[in-house]
């Protein structure tokens, strides 16, 4: 399915999640990078050396979850916009998802948006709780969405062009 539609299936992305106990311990990164392509900016971007590609730049990145603290620095460095950070410990009943965003307008912190899944379909309403626009992100904004905790690994985007999407 991924190769014919661009939509990663549950078995694809589940294999990219860290073990249950790490997930409950705090924010963690999810690399939705499934194909061997020549690319390695993520490896250099990590201040904790938690991401390894290695000598062959076609390798798929591997994450050491003992070293990754979910800081999210790598998100805006990925040309494929394939990196997300998930926090299942954000607030009682709620998790936070950090997503890369390259559309205008940029949703404002505190606004509400419709969050979508990997297939672009609506998942839930979400509060924008963080908007990162650091210069070194080079115009890739990183947005934090507060979502029901059971949906943290379903939400991967914001609906485009919705009139109530924080605009």
């Amino acid at each position: 399915m991924l190769k014919t539609t661009g939509v990663a299936q549950k078995e694809d992305w589940q294999a990219k999640l860290p073990p249950e106990e790490r997930r409950k311990a705090g924010p963690y990164v999810v690399y939705e990078c499934y194909q061997k392509i020549p690319c390695n900016p993520c490896e250099k971007s990590c201040p904790f050396k938690a991401v390894t590609i290695g000598e062959d730049i076609n390798n798929i990145p591997r994450v050491d979850y003992d070293l990754c603290n979910g800081c999210g620095v790598c998100i805006a460095r990925c040309p494929g916009l394939a990196i997300f950070v998930v926090d299942e410990t954000y607030a009682p009943g709620y998790g936070k998802v950090l997503i890369p965003w390259e559309y205008l307008p940029v949703p404002e912190k505190g606004s509400e948006v419709t969050a979508v899944g990997r297939d672009g379909k609506d998942v839930c309403r979400a509060e924008v709780v963080e908007v990162r626009t650091a210069r070194n992100q080079d115009r890739t904004v990183v947005i934090g969405l507060k979502v029901p905790v059971d949906l943290v690994n379903e939400v991967r985007g914001i609906k485009l062009g919705g009139e109530d999407n924080g605009r």
Binding site: G6, V116, G120
Partner: peptide, 23 residues
């Protein structure tokens, strides 16, 4: 073609935006 020819991470950006890719 039966499969997407470009990088799948690019295709996934479109999928998240709700654009159907019809192979």
């Amino acid at each position: 073609a039966p499969q997407i020819g470009g990088y799948l991470v690019h295709a996934s950006k479109l999928a998240r935006a709700g654009v159907p890719i019809l192979t």
